[in-house]
């Protein structure tokens, strides 16, 4: 498909899903009524619902999806492996641990931003450990191993926090948070995550040409003027900022970074550079769609976004393995 056509189709899909996301919710509002309230700010309770509940939810879904898809595509391009996903470098696990600690200590209840900030702190610690372990010049393998080690440690500590939670209610609060959701988020969450996700997006998109060159392997790319050290540092820091912020505001949402690049690869002629923006748009569309599904399937049960994503993502992942096996 021509890149222009693909970009237009994906943008159109994102815009459509964004609009649908704005129109869905427990409050039964008319289409014109809600859109007018959103634009003009006139209409009492409707304005509140649109501007304080639905708009931040749709914005977060688009942002979180975009950065997850983009990070997955960038990491797959760098590692030249279609099975890589942003969680591989340990940031999502560590961000979740940070958030869980905020819940456990009661910090989360004290201030709205305590939970996401604590998640971001977790991501920061993780990226420092990974860079320390893998070193500035280490290869792709050390990066993966360091990521796995940090992920494992964060998982163990999260389990420990759960284990030590004072009562079943605290434990279930933690468990539900880790399932990932965009319900009851406010513009404050959007404002917190936006700069990190925006910076991550710019940084990752700037590596498009280097990732294209890496198609030929590290040696050939380097001989064409690509600085591997710079690519790696940019990727690790950007993914930490973007995925860390996404996890901090939305909880752990898996499979987006794995599945979206895989689905879109053939539409961009397998070029890793082009796959970046395509996966950002595709990720936004997928998470918006999943968040719509969450509200349509069981409006009164608070179905978690992370659960739906896993239910969509795991079969797609199986399909990927199946196809990889068939091609081998």
């Amino acid at each position: 498909m021509r890149p222009g056509v693909l970009a237009l189709s994906l943008s159109g899909l994102v815009a459509l899903l964004f609009a649908v996301s704005l129109l869905i919710g427990p409050a039964q509002l008319g289409v014109t009524e809600s859109l007018r309230a959103l634009w003009s700010g006139e209409g009492g309770a409707t304005v509140l619902v649109m501007r304080e509940i639905r708009l931040p939810r749709a914005l977060l879904a688009a942002m979180v999806g975009a950065v997850l898809g983009l990070s997955g595509a960038a990491l797959q391009g760098y590692l030249r492996n279609p099975l890589a996903e942003p969680g591989l470098i340990g940031v999502s696990g560590a961000a979740a641990l940070g958030a869980v600690i905020a819940l456990q200590t009661g910090l989360a209840g004290a201030a709205t931003l305590a939970l996401p900030l604590s998640g971001l702190a977790g991501a920061l610690v993780a990226v420092l450990i990974v860079l320390l372990l893998a070193g500035p010049r280490g290869g792709a393998l050390t990066l993966i191993l360091a990521g796995i080690a940090v992920s494992a440690l964060a998982g163990a500590l999260t389990a420990l926090v759960l284990n030590l939670s004072p009562n079943p209610f605290a434990a279930s609060e933690i468990v539900f948070w880790t399932l990932g959701s965009l319900a009851d988020r406010s513009m404050v969450h959007v404002a917190l995550a936006a700069p990190f996700i925006g910076l991550a997006g710019v940084a990752l998109l700037s590596q498009a040409r280097a990732l294209d060159a890496l198609t030929l392997g590290e040696d050939a790319a380097q001989a064409m003027g690509v600085s591997l050290t710079r690519v790696r540092l940019t990727l690790v820091l950007a993914i930490a900022a973007g995925v860390g912020a996404a996890t901090a505001v939305a909880g752990a949402i898996g499979f987006v970074g794995l599945v979206v690049p895989h689905l879109l690869r053939r539409w961009v002629g397998a070029r890793p550079g082009r796959l970046l923006w395509a996966s950002a748009l595709g990720g936004a569309a997928l998470v918006l769609a999943a968040d719509i599904a969450v509200r349509l399937i069981a409006p009164d049960r608070d179905l978690k976004l992370g659960v739906i994503m896993a239910l969509i993502g795991a079969p797609l992942f199986l399909h990927l393995i199946w196809r990889t096996r068939a091609e081998a």
């Binding site: 030249r80 040409r209 294209d212 060159a213 890496l214 198609t215 030929l216 392997g217 040696d219 050939a220 001989a223 064409m224 003027g225 690869r265 002629g269 397998a270 070029r271 890793p272």
Partner: peptide
Amino acid sequence: AAAWLPQAREIAWPVSVETLVRLGRMP
């Protein structure tokens, strides 16, 4: 000033032949 053809013939993704050859124009 110099083009390098490593021994390992790595082509990581199923890109078209022309796309791959065009990567040589990067510098």
